[in-house]
């Protein structure tokens, strides 16, 4: 990151311009620091452990990817309520294939080509599922909320049909490496997340596709008259959303060594919350990868702090919901002054 910061305004990644463009990032950073300080004050001995932060680097990437996926859908004023379904279905399909190929010999030692096949299948699942969403939204003119509500049911339903209910347990060791392993002392999902983050930030701010998405979200009519290929761009954005969902599914099944149809259902609320908190405008046109990434880290610190304080999972859900409403209220209050 530092090298990018020093590269000057010509390449665009100038921190001052970032602040001028949008106060949001600074606010988010302040909030993250605040959460960090409060949690440290509340339980310094437990919260500040290296282990706590290390485990966070395994946990947050999957949620971060889902939130970024949600943000991309929101850029055009849409939403994707099926991402969690896509994530689970991708993991389950890959799991089914591993178990079919390995047979009785056990899946743990599955070879590299098979794992690669599994990754291919999972990502293809995400791409196809996303394309179905995109086609329903652009060709059939269904509102994104209802289209993805419906497809989310179908994807989750297919996952239930494939597993028959219980989880698929046991994945190849190489697959688990994606969710549990280490690269150069850093958690693999964390490294993967950083790479994807940089890639997506570049795609959204530096390519025709990304800029078109922003323009379509800001003013659909103007974008149409300007000759942007709205349908195709929206379709691509949902395919991208689906693929990110399936990568999150790979990480999730790799980390837990299992895939289940109702894994991470509370992720949906959290992904929406993080996207909104990260400065995404759900009505379209505004959103950044960096904002969402900081927001996910802030909220993971918050929830890990509460877990250390022995709050139950349900209470953490309560706090997530309260936080979302608080952010909405704050934003409304802020905009009223203008």
């Amino acid at each position: 990151m530092n090298t990018e910061l020093n590269s000057g305004p010509k390449n665009g990644f100038d921190i001052r311009r970032l602040i001028n463009r949008d106060n949001n990032i600074v606010q988010l950073l302040l909030m993250t620091v605040l959460i960090f300080v409060v949690m440290t004050a509340l339980s310094p001995d437990k919260f500040l452990r290296y282990y706590n932060f290390e485990s966070l680097t395994y946990l947050f990437p999957e949620l971060g990817l889902l939130a970024i996926a949600m943000m991309i859908a929101m850029l055009t004023g849409g939403i994707d309520l099926s991402v969690v379904g896509i994530a689970n279905l991708s993991g389950i399909l890959a799991g089914v294939i591993f178990h079919k190929i390995a047979g009785d010999s056990g899946v743990a030692g599955t070879g590299f080509p098979t794992v690669l096949l599994g990754i291919g299948v999972a990502i293809a699942t995400g791409a196809v599922a996303g394309a179905i969403n995109g086609l329903l939204i652009t060709r059939m003119n269904i509102t994104p909320i209802l289209a993805t509500l419906g497809t989310g049911q179908v994807y989750t339903g297919l996952a239930v049909v494939l597993t028959g209910g219980p989880a698929i347990v046991g994945f190849p060791d190489m697959w688990s490496f994606i969710g549990n392993g280490k690269i150069l002392g850093l958690a693999t999902p964390f490294v993967l997340f950083l790479v994807l983050m940089v890639l997506l930030a570049w795609v959204l701010t530096r390519t025709t596709f990304g800029i078109n998405l922003m323009l379509i979200g800001t003013n659909p009519k103007a974008a149409l008259f300007a000759g942007l290929k709205r349908e195709r761009m929206v379709l691509y954005s949902y395919i991208l959303t689906g693929v990110l969902g399936s990568i999150a599914g790979i990480m999730l099944s790799g980390r837990t060594n299992a895939a289940k149809s109702d894994y991470g259902t509370s992720y949906l609320l959290q992904a929406v919350l993080i996207a909104v908190l990260g400065g995404t405008n759900p009505a379209g046109g505004k959103g950044s990868v960096i904002g969402v990434s900081i927001a996910v880290i802030a909220l993971m610190l918050l929830s890990s702090g509460f877990t250390i304080l022995r709050f139950s999972n349900h209470l953490v859900d309560f706090i997530w919901g309260a936080f979302l409403l608080l952010v909405i209220a704050l934003n409304a209050w802020k905009n009223r002054g203008r």
Partner: peptide
Amino acid sequence: FVHNFRMIPLIVTLGTSGMVRGFLLGVVGT
């Protein structure tokens, strides 16, 4: 939230839903 804070109903109701369920299971009982 929908009227005074002009937020999209879907996101508002996702939030209230999470809060109410979390409160019920976390505070009142399971």
